[in-house]
């Protein structure tokens, strides 16, 4: 099991996700600085959350031009699992690995709180072990949008990974924290080896966090 966590200037969940991976898989992931140009053989590449380049211009825009991202894109196309969390999701979209855009939250403010999600695609390497799960979100731009043609495409191809829902798994407007289209909290690429999601599974990964639901995503991909 070899995993890699990409570190951009301004990443701030790199350590958190590395700790979660270590706790769950027993293996210490390798941290990869954004100026490096390639990643060795990998079973999982994580693009962590944070404020890469301060989120200046557009979240994730400048990180997507980093040298390392060319190799991440290449590896993703070869089928290596890539997980982007929060700012990492934004970076994967800007890199062209995932469809859509992440706009400012409909409330126009940063939101940090626990939410519930459930997988729509239940067979991908990332989502197969998760049911209704509680974990935090912490973002200003998580309002997912795609054009209606793209939406149809990702729906038909079973690319919706997670949707915001209530305790009973109902996907409703009330359970949508940020205005995302179709309550989308995370999406997959066509081949289902790239996942971008706004919620932070690494912050719900041990008892001290008050909830361990986030572990299921790592368990699914790491074991």
């Amino acid at each position: 099991m070899k995993s890699h966590v990409i570190v951009f200037p301004g990443s701030n969940c790199d350590r958190d996700v590395a700790v979660a991976i270590k706790n769950i898989s027993g293996h210490q992931p390798q941290m990869v600085w954004h100026k490096e140009s390639s990643i060795n053989q990998s079973d999982l590449i994580v693009v962590p959350g944070g404020f890469s380049y301060g989120d200046y211009l557009r979240c994730g825009a400048m990180a997507s031009t980093s040298p390392i991202m060319q190799d991440v894109v290449k590896k993703a196309k070869e089928g290596v699992p890539v997980l982007g969390i929060c700012n990492g999701f934004q970076i994967l979209i800007e890199s062209g690995l995932l469809d859509g855009a992440l706009m400012r939250n409909s409330s126009l403010s940063f939101i940090c709180r626990d939410i519930l999600i459930k997988p729509k695609n239940q067979s991908s390497v990332f989502t197969k072990k998760t049911q209704v799960a509680k974990m935090p979100i912490a973002h200003n731009e998580g309002n997912f949008f795609v054009t209606s043609e793209q939406l149809k495409k990702i729906q038909d191809n079973d690319q919706i990974a997670f949707q915001y829902c209530d305790e009973n798994g109902n996907v409703s407007e009330h359970s949508n924290p940020n205005g995302s289209l179709e309550n989308i909290a995370g999406i997959l690429n066509e081949n289902k080896n790239v996942l971008g999601m706004m919620p932070h599974p690494e912050r719900a990964a041990e008892l001290a966090h008050g909830c361990e639901d986030g572990k299921t995503i790592f368990e699914s991909i790491l074991n």
Partner: peptide, 14 residues
């Protein structure tokens, strides 16, 4: 202008 200077650096690196 923190945004401006970071954008400048990114453009330079491109």
């Amino acid at each position: 202008d923190p945004q401006g200077s970071v954008i400048a650096n990114s453009l330079k690196s491109l």
